[in-house]
Amino acid sequence: MRAAVLTRFGAPLTVREVPDPEAAGGEVIVDVLAACVLPYAAEVFSGERNYPLVPPVVPGTGAVGRVVHVGADATRLRVGDLVWCDPAVRSRDDALTPDITLQGWSSRGEGGARLARYMHDGSFAERMRIPTENAFPLPAAAGDDPARWAALGVHVISYGGLLAGGLAAGETLLVSGATGNLGSSAVAVALAMGAGRVIAPGRNQAVLGLLADRFGPRVRPVELTGDESTDRAAMSAVADGPIDMVIDLLPPSAPSSATRAAAMTLREYGRVVLMGGVGMLGGDDLALPYPWIMRNSITVRGQWLGPRSANAGIIRLLASGALDLAPERVRSFGLDAVNEAVTYAAAHGGPFDRTTLTPPAG
């Protein structure tokens, strides 16, 4: 089969023939129909983000695909099934704290690195191997436009964070980083989950207007100034009531002061979920005040990825129409144009911009 291979950091991906994946027990082989190219993929492949990928590797996080082989342990999956391939692979020998690798992308700790050495390659290929439990059936409609449904790879992340924070219908959510690719997903997913209103702070006035136009009065945009106290007051004021939850999805380039300003708008007993990249490339620590956390009974939770059940949940939201993919702008590239796709994704990382690889399309 053909695949795009990262031979070394800082080099373009090379499209070449590689051996077809072979499934062991408890694994599935899938023909890749569409794989999402994340806006920061170029930063990963250049080595700027210092991800624990080990070249040579086929990168790529998740895919929409069609099953071509199932093992004896699969009781419901069938050859020909259309599935979402969840890239979050978990070890099976520790139910309490499983090691995790993000297949073809990243991993956590030495255990995750060991898992990554086994489940090494991702979705930038004509075919991929995944654990049986990572194949999630999709509705037939996804087969009509698999490139659009590949946005699952973005939406399932924000959905996992909202689940971690216990977002309830009618609550007010503040999305720190709302004007970004992942943050705008959190706005859309939260509204699909029944959020009463969503506070959307950012510096890009045009993008804030886009969010307000698409979602109406339940979205409350706030143009940020960069001054922590001013921005905190503005976010609190536009909420027109208590803020129940904050989810932070800011990128590594953002200052920790922006995360802190958002977090400290919370009401007493509020929750903050940290899912972004602040501090990953250096910079100041978050430094939330201990007395404020303690006296206001604030819950602060870090969340990397989400539970396996998040995949099934986000598919249900999409299948029901509560979360609408139709307005998203999708640009697809064949496998031979993978480097063009990576460059395009970096330049088109705004709200609801999606870049995909569609290997069978050439």
Rank of each mutant, 00 (worst) to 15 (best):
V189W: 08
V189P: 03
V189R: 08
V189M: 09
V189H: 07
V189C: 09
L191A: 12
L191T: 10
A192K: 00
A192W: 04
M193K: 14
G194V: 08
G194F: 03
A195N: 09
A195P: 01
G196F: 04
G196H: 05
G196K: 08
R197Q: 15
R197D: 03
V198E: 12
V198K: 07
V198I: 10
V198T: 11
V198F: 07
I199W: 03
I199A: 06
A200R: 06
A200M: 09
P201F: 06
P201A: 09
P201D: 12
P201Y: 08
P201E: 11
G202A: 08
G202C: 07
G202E: 12
G202W: 01
G202P: 02
G202S: 08
R203L: 02
R203A: 09
R203T: 10
N204Q: 11
N204I: 06
N204T: 14
N204R: 14
N204P: 01
Q205T: 15
A206R: 06
A206V: 11
A206W: 00
V207E: 07
L208R: 02
L208H: 04
L208V: 05
L208C: 04
G209V: 11
L210Q: 15
L210E: 15
L210A: 13
L211K: 05
L211M: 10
L211P: 04
L211V: 07
L211A: 11
A212P: 01
A212I: 05
A212M: 02
A212D: 05
D213V: 00
R214V: 10
F215W: 13
F215H: 14
F215E: 00
G216T: 11
P217N: 05
P217R: 12
R218T: 14
R218Q: 15
V219T: 05
V219G: 02
R220N: 06
R220S: 12
R220G: 02
P221N: 10
P221R: 05
P221W: 04
P221T: 08
V222S: 03
V222D: 04
E223P: 02
E223Y: 02
E223T: 15
E223I: 12
E223M: 14
E223S: 15
L224I: 07
L224G: 01
L224Y: 03
L224D: 01
L224R: 14
L224W: 03
T225Y: 04
T225H: 04
G226V: 02
D227K: 12
E228D: 09
S229G: 01
S229K: 11
S229P: 00
T230C: 08
T230P: 00
D231Q: 05
D231E: 09
R232D: 12
R232I: 03
A233N: 08
A233T: 13
A234M: 06
A234D: 11
M235I: 12
S236C: 10
A237P: 00
A237Q: 14
A237F: 01
